[in-house]
């Protein structure tokens, strides 16, 4: 089990964070850290969510989050990328 971070670009509106965190809750994965901010495009927010899990969990979370209609982009960050 390793820490993993997903970077999301999402619609900047109410209820979106709720939909995303609900997916973590549904599978029982704790969110270790969460960072949300508006972007230069007022209609979008960026999120960084760090959680803990194995390959199966990482891939499942990315796939499940990708299905949400308020989510524009999902990137699974690597250790290296986070350090940069």
């Amino acid at each position: 089990m390793e820490k993993f971070t997903v970077e999301l670009l999402v619609e900047n509106k109410y209820g979106v964070l709720n939909r995303i965190t609900a997916l973590y809750a549904k599978r029982g994965y704790n969110i270790d850290s969460l960072y949300v901010h508006a972007t230069e495009d007022a209609s979008l927010s960026r999120m960084l969510i760090t959680s803990t899990g194995d390959d199966y969990i990482r891939i499942q979370m990315v796939k499940q989050i990708s299905k949400l209609y308020d989510v524009r982009q999902v990137i699974l960050m690597t250790e290296v990328k986070i350090k940069i």
Binding site: G15, N18, R19, A22, K67, L68, Y69
Partner: peptide, 14 residues
């Protein structure tokens, strides 16, 4: 109802 149905719909709107 949007909150209640969040995990059983593809999407919902208020």
């Amino acid at each position: 109802i949007a909150g209640i149905t969040n995990s059983i719909v593809k999407h919902n709107y208020v």
